[in-house]
Amino acid sequence: MNINKKNDKGNLLDLTPGKMVELFSDAVASSIPEREGAPRVVYRMAGDAYLLVEYGEMVLDLDLTFRVYALDHAIKEKQIEGVLETAPGVRSLLVNYDCLRLPLNKLLEELYDLEHSLPSLGEAEVSSRIVYLPIAYHDRWTKEAIAKYMKSVRAEAPYLPDNMEFVARCNALDGIEQVIYYHTATQHMVLALGDVYLGAPCAVPLDPRYRLVVPKYNPARMWTPEGAVGIGGSYVCIYPMESPGGYQLVGRTLSIWSTNQTSPAFSEAPWLLRPFDRIQFEPVSEPELEEAREAMLLQDYSLRIESDIFNLKKYNSFLNSIKDEVEAFKAKQEEASFRWTKGY
């Protein structure tokens, strides 16, 4: 096996043209160890049409997400013949390729080249819009979803009858009002789209002092209203259509998907959100939300969106400055979570 042995091109693998790649293991095609300014890379096999490029350790770290998007951008720029499409995750990029046009060893060669050309991301900046979304917390629509679940799937569970009370308990908070306070105290950054389907954001609270963590439903709901906002693990999602789902529901917001692009907010695409958008939730009443949702359909709702830049270095030094507070909050969370989800 020639893995991690540099050849004269400076690549990490002997990639003689036409030669079939020797796999590192059955499931891992290759890997690159951690280097100065670059995380470990593991190239995981996902059949003969996909490769999953995974960065770093199993942790939520925006440095890794930035790296994912840097690679994604580099692949698109290079227009590699045989790469059909790519899909980013939190710390990985899925590459869909046609192995008849681009065999695995050639794909790996291209990816190695790109990996070594990516700049260190310590100084990275991305354009990042701030999207202000009105939200009705503890609303009748999500309560209806919970009631349906209790009637048809499971009548008793730690997260029933009130998902928000459960969120409060799991995070050592003092009831629903405090959940709302925490949820609006931080912006939520969109790390990927499609969680699940149609532009649904996989978003994470940027300020870890307000990062609510809660287990998902088990088993999942059969029905969730469109526009519902939920928390699962440490991620926040907005449901783009009526669908099954497993996140703990906290409220309802605007539509984030429009098939026929009927509103100005959707003039560019049927989906509203983009990676690195920062969502700022703003509490409104149920009638106010209904009005906003209707206005959006009638094309006379102006969604507040501000263009901005997000600087990774500044963010990391901010994280450093609040380290002690975060650790104290996490310890409280873990204790509460252990107590309320025992036997879950």
Binding site: G89, V90, A192, G233
Partner: peptide, 20 residues
């Protein structure tokens, strides 16, 4: 699942291959 969730099948979100 560590930070990914409470079930051992949980991980941080990643994109799936069709047929996985």
């Amino acid at each position: 699942g560590g930070e990914g969730g409470s079930h051992p099948s949980n991980i941080h979100d990643c994109a799936y291959a069709i047929g996985t």
